[in-house]
Design a protein around this nucleic acid. Structure first.
Lengths: 117, 117
DNA sequence: GCCGTACTACGACGGGTATCGTACAAGGGT
DNA sequence: ACCCTTGTACGATACCCGTCGTAGTACGGC
C-alpha cells in the first residue's frame, strides 16, 4: 500500500473547469438522468451497486465516468465499493438553480408519464 | 399556391411530447446553445441568416432542425426567410425555470471565460 | 492463501451526429 | 424573365457514444 486513505485516485475536473455543455450532455442520457435523480433523492453517498439500472455493469461504469468527468458527481473508493455523490455545491456555485431546475423538470416529466399510464 | 399563409409546413412536436432528455441534448451543443442565447437576448423572431455561426449553412440548417424537433424553438416561413422563436411558454409550462436557469448558466460561464481572457 | 464481491479495462459493434460540399427549390425585386 | 437571397436535400465522411462481453484488478473476509 502506498497511501493510507486513497489507494486509487480518480480524476475529477476542478470546479472552474466544469463546462455547462458537458453537464447538459451528461444529463441528457436517460440512464444518467435516472442516476442523478436517485442520488438527489437519497442525500447520502451511494455505491454504484445501489442503482438498479437496465444496463450491464460495464455500461454502468461508463455512465458513472461520464458523470464524473463532466463534473456532475464525485466518486471515492471505500474498500471495494465506490461511493458517489452529487457535486451540488460546485454546480450551484457555477450555475445557480440549474441542477434543481433539471431535477424538478425530471420529476414533472415522470409524474406526467406515470399519470398517463 | 395552396394555402394563403403557410405554403411550406414544418413539423413541431406538440407541447406534451417534448422530452426533457431531448431538450437537454439540444442545448448541450455549443452552436445550438449559442443560437438559443441569441434568441433569448433579442426577444423577437429572428431569421436563420441573422446568426453569425462558425459553421456552414448546411450545418446551420441541421442545428435549427434539431432545436425545432426537440421542441426548443418554433419556426415559420416568411417569404424566403424562416423566422425562429423560442418556445418559452411551452418550456416554462413543462419545465418551470429550466430555460432561464440554462440561460443564466450560459451567461455566467461566458462572463467567466471572457473575464479570464 | 483463497475466494467472492465490486468495479474496471479493453475491444467490438452498431447507430447517431456534426460537419461539409454541391445541387436544388422557393420567393422577392428589378 | 432573370437573378439574388434564403434556406433545403442529399450524400459523404469522420467521429462520438451507448451498449455489450470477456478478461482482469482491488479489496475484504474466511
Amino acid at each position: 500500500m502506498t497511501t493510507a486513505t486513497s489507494p486509487r485516485a480518480l480524476e475529477h475536473p476542478p470546479r472552474d473547469r466544469i463546462r455547462l455543455e458537458a453537464v447538459l450532455h451528461a444529463l441528457s442520457d436517460p440512464v444518467r438522468l435516472r442516476i442523478v435523480r436517485d442520488m438527489a433523492r437519497e442525500a447520502t453517498e451511494l455505491s454504484c451497486s445501489y442503482f438498479d439500472l437496465p444496463v450491464t455493469k460495464s455500461t454502468t461504469t461508463h455512465h458513472f465516468r461520464v458523470l464524473r468527468e463532466s463534473g456532475v458527481i464525485q466518486q471515492m473508493y471505500r474498500g471495494t465499493a465506490k461511493l458517489n455523490a452529487l457535486r451540488g455545491e460546485d454546480l450551484d456555485a457555477l450555475f445557480p438553480g440549474l441542477l434543481d431546475a433539471v431535477l424538478a423538470a425530471a420529476d414533472a416529466q415522470a409524474a406526467r408519464t406515470e399519470g398517463a399510464a
